[in-house]
Design a protein around this nucleic acid. Sequence first.
RNA 1: CGGGACGUAGCGCAGCUUGGUAGCGCGCAUCGUUCGGGACGAUGAGGUCGCCGGUUCAAAUCCGGCCGUCCCGACCA
Length: 569
Amino acid sequence: MRWSKAFIPTLRDDPTDAEAVSHKLLIRAAFIRQLMAGVYTLLPLAYRSRRKIQQIIEEEIDAIGGQEFLFPSLHPAEIWRKTGRLDIMGDEMFRLFDRKSGEIVLGMTHEEIFTTIATEITSYKQLPQIWYQIHTKFRDEPRPKSGLLRVREFTMKDSYSFDIDQDGLDKAFDAHYAAYRRIFARIGLDAVPVEASSGAMGGSGSVEFMVRSAAGEDLVAHCPNCDYAANVERADTQIAAASDDAGPDAPEQFATPGVRTIEDLVNFEGGAAADRQIKTLVFVLDGEPTLILMRGDHSLQEQKLQDHTGAIEIRAAHSEEILDLLGADAGSLGAVGVQDVPIVADQALRGRTNMTTGANENDSHLRGVSVDRDIDVSTWGSLREVQAGEPCIECGEPIDIFRAIECGHIFKLGTKYSEPLGAMVLDENGKSRALYMGSYGIGLERNLAAVVETHHDDKGIAWPVPVAPYEAVVTVLKLDDDTLAAADSVYDGLKSAGIDVIIDDRKERPGVKFNDAELIGIPYRITVGPRGLAEGVVEVNDRALGDTDTLPLSDVVAIVIAKVESKRT
RNA sequence: CGGGACGUAGCGCAGCUUGGUAGCGCGCAUCGUUCGGGACGAUGAGGUCGCCGGUUCAAAUCCGGCCGUCCCGACCA
């Protein structure tokens, strides 16, 4: 490619709004343009990089026996209704109607649709199968943000495994786990596998691949000692042994004027320490008001509550609903004596005695509450969010928590989709059995942005060679016949060796060319100028290291080829 | 869904308070000088001021509605 003919409209002004670094750089360096909220055009540079990510993914999924398909994005709503996910997905699913008023949805994932073809698997002899596609997904995110990191239309590699039993599923899952580790390593991402919640996907287990980054939207609990890692939506917590005194025979009500928060009650004369308080939250789970009880110093993890209860729609109750239900405002709520409302309690409250909680009367609390004696708990669960510094569930050492970008997610689905959709096969005994399925996803553009988040400096992007839009740029410093001829010989030599190379033949000053190449992040720059040519040399600059070597013109092609090939994965 | 801000040339912005027919920087075009780390001069092209309505002799500016975009929150009662 000749830069003078390429569409690379490099900008030099930053967008005003502070956002993810990758977003700013991808805009400034002419990789992407926004079309509307959460929808982006990939310009040629970005598309080149995305295709390389795609190529790596295809190689690795093919290597574990994957077969590539192309499924439609338009789905009949009916199929989603069959598995119940038309409702579960809610507003996140784009919906439209065709000319016959037929209800259509845009695919946000493809478990149902792949399963329509999987019904054609009829015998255990055809198993196992791994099927995948790389295609567009549509998700009407409530709040798209951070450029390519959270969007409404994006490309996903989604694969699905079909097996006769759990053992087969485990093998397919492990194969994907290994393939994903190779994919992220090749792309240049340091992705940590972590235990995760399965959320709306359902199933028995899942692992997310997390890349540490300040721009990430997920929080990962990680133990530096034993390497335990889990999304905080899922991370287990240790239960500290409590040594409460028995307290009185019955709760005692006492006046607490103006006390509204846990903190207030800690500081109130005759109040209680935070870990001796019961925090009462009101949530509406699928329309049903429910009390959630937490220890005063603990935070509810909503995803854990959702996973525990199986609720689809979950929200905090409004203040009027709370008043209506319990007769008091938030700040004075409690579960003592509450009979007609489900009560979900965190396991940290099990067996606790002599606790303090709200009395369901404004400006009034109860002390001497024994949980087992005084509260009619419906179910117990692990509901609280793990905090940095608390003991690791595996080894007891203090854990740390870091922000991360979810770059891949793999699920064991079991028969959740095959049963309602009738994807059955006959086993060796002629018995009909539902397929065991797994699903496995990687968001390509998010991975592209994650690479930029983790590979940049004050000059711009520094692409790893395997995903760089161009592996090398030949920068021509002066457009005279001799310099151009020398530069063209380098360019042709690299190109014919299969190097992705671009020649910067623009009529620009050298400084502009250097800065643009660095902003865009091309890994190797070969600088060809009259000054060097007089000595028979050119320069090779390494974008990531910042090093510059001076090399004989006659050797430079072979050396750059060797450099590039050593970095390809 | 709640709160806040913004929408003016390809991009980044000023002008609006106090209404009088639109400007700055970058970029773009032409010419000249320069040119191994974001050059300079001259000339020039480019705008339905988000959309609709209202007030007014007159609206980018004031009022109302709508649309769009961004940010914060979505919990700790």
